[in-house]
Design a protein around this nucleic acid. Structure first.
Length: 271
DNA sequence: CACGGATCCTGATGGC
DNA sequence: TGCCATCAGGATCCGT
């Protein structure tokens, strides 16, 4: 479920409540993508100082080190005072003085990793090659133009790779390219400066709008308080194969790119 | 090194 | 109802 908007919505839904909480204990379920990377006793007694986001990672700052949380394809977080017993897919529970933080992840592509600091090898292995934050000031048009000039892959796949700009996943890549009027198969390096400028704006606006809408709830995404998102209701092309384009009425098409579905309007989006 | 495909895992859905 | 194939919001690893 989690692209940048879903992760940011999740972050906002519990960051304030957990700030200052003391970690009491943790419970682990089945293995996630990577091992925790520390003895659980290392976490006990530490405080959670703040919750930040980098790309699709949640960063829980602790007194000594940080926890990196990734939601993978099917992960979601809950934070509540009196949760029931851990369910079948609750694979990480952090008991704190202010409530229980849980990662529920049926497919277990997600992860929770401890790192002694943001510059540590453990953290840099995960964060080191991430691209720029699209909603921040560092997402500069000139840099984006220059970066795309060096990529021969289709623009959709460059966006998904996340080493140029982070946070754009399968839903928002299709949506941003629709807004920009760009065919997803177009090679990144072949885009004109004017079209890259449109894409730059489209990425920012589609992600910002999705955050406002609480993210997208396709099957079961919800924030840490259990609330669904609404962005999927206004998606222009994602999940709309065979339906009329909301702008021109042509039928939305779907293709496969790198084992992922891509949706686009054959008339509004030019190669 | 840049690229594209295979891969991890579970569940939902649709065809027969 | 069962069985099988396909698909799903991600990102790493590996061969070319």
């Amino acid at each position: 479920m989690p692209e940048l908007p879903e992760v940011e919505v999740t972050r906002r839904s519990f960051a304030t409540q957990i700030a200052g909480a003391h970690i009491q204990s943790l419970e682990l379920g089945k293995p996630l993508r990577w091992p925790l990377g520390c003895d659980p006793a290392v976490l006990s007694g530490q405080r959670v100082l703040a919750v930040r986001r980098r790309g699709k990672y949640l960063l829980l700052d602790l007194d000594h080190g940080l926890l990196l949380l990734h939601l993978g394809m099917s992960g979601s977080v809950t934070f509540s005072w009196a949760p029931g017993p851990a369910g079948k897919h609750d694979h990480f529970s952090l008991n704190t003085s202010r409530g229980v933080l849980r990662l529920n992840d049926p497919r277990r592509f997600g992860a929770v990793v401890f790192a002694p600091g943001e510059d540590s090898p453990q953290a840099q292995k995960l964060l080191g090659k991430l691209g720029v934050e699209p909603l921040g000031e560092a997402f500069v048009l000139e840099d984006f133009v220059r970066a795309l000039k060096q990529r021969m892959s289709p623009i959709k796949q460059v966006l998904l790779a996340g080493d140029t700009v982070v946070g754009v996943g399968n839903i928002y890549a299709s949506e941003a390219l629709f807004l920009a009027g760009i065919r997803p198969t177009t090679r990144a390096a072949r885009l004109s400066r004017a079209r890259v400028e449109r894409l730059h704006g489209a990425i920012r606006s589609v992600l910002a709008r999705a955050v406002e809408q609480g993210g997208s709830t396709l099957r079961d995404f919800s924030n840490s308080q259990g609330e669904s998102g609404h962005f999927q209701l206004e998606a222009a092309v994602y999940g709309r194969a065979g339906l009329p384009c909301r702008v021109c009425g042509s039928l939305v098409r779907t293709i496969r790119q790198g084992q992922r579905s891509t949706f686009f309007c054959p008339v509004c989006q030019k190669p």
